[in-house]
Write a protein that binds this DNA or RNA. Structure first.
Lengths: 131, 131
DNA sequence: TTAACATTTGAATAATTGTTCATATATAGT
DNA sequence: ACTATATATGAACAATTATTCAAATGTTAA
């Protein structure tokens, strides 16, 4: 028999409450543990999707998908958002290496930086429209 | 000439501040406007990525990718999170139709619901690892 | 009917984040 | 120098959200 609280949460960063059944599908757990990518990779993957998971940034990416490049002003016009808001979001896309930029006088032109971006958007798009 | 404030923000939900150059690349703007999917579709797309853009949910999806199905308890064990936290996230994945479930007695088994999910994760994974 | 257990759910909390506003920087023209 | 314009940036605010906790379901077995 299990003592009271044996599988109960004791400390913030220690054991967590978990089911008390004897057979917690050990085979399944083992298989998952062996085949799942490491934490760091999964976090990076989640971060990538997190960046695409915003309406404004999604619109920016899709706009840049249609043309070679756009300046902040163009994006501001198309998305009907202040240049400041656009600039903030572009910074995030820049930091994630999803877009690159080119400066010409006062104007900064942004464009997609990655071939994968289009693929990811396309697959997601299929999911939305077909499903 | 433009009057002062002609292109400046006047009201909260009216015009927004936008660049005052004459040539705001009209051709580019037009092309983008014509070829970009409608707002509703883009929002749904962003929502999809938003759901995948969370560490816990990403781990759940990747775990389910390795095996046929897992119960809340299994996921709780593998992810080292309380069943409650897992359940909350599973609800979100359920509502997005990304996972389905099957009840067997007290135990609820979850599995991936969509073929696209794997594709999306794979493309994202390539981006992370190759890039 | 009890007791035990897997899961769900609602409320509360803490953390994250998108937008706005004001301001700063950089560049071009006068 | 000065002015105008395009963009960037920092702080503040509002909104969203992931997790925890406590409590509620729903199920099985005694």
């Amino acid at each position: 028999m299990l003592k009271d609280g044996d599988n109960m949460k004791k400390d913030k960063n220690d054991v967590i409450e978990v089911c008390q059944t004897i057979e917690i599908h050990e085979d399944i757990i083992k298989k998952v543990r062996e085949n799942t990518p490491d934490e760091n990779t999964l976090n990076k993957l989640a971060d990538l999707f997190k960046i695409m998971g915003d309406n404004t940034r999604m619109k920016i990416l899709y706009a840049l998908l249609q043309v070679d490049e756009m300046c902040v002003c163009d994006l501001s016009t198309v998305l009907k958002k202040t240049p400041s808001a656009i600039s903030h979001q572009l910074r995030i896309l820049r930091q994630a290496d999803l877009v690159k930029y080119r400066k010409e006088g006062k104007v900064v032109y942004y464009s997609l930086n990655d071939e994968h971006v289009k693929e990811i958007l396309d697959v997601g798009f299929s999911h939305i429209t077909e499903g």
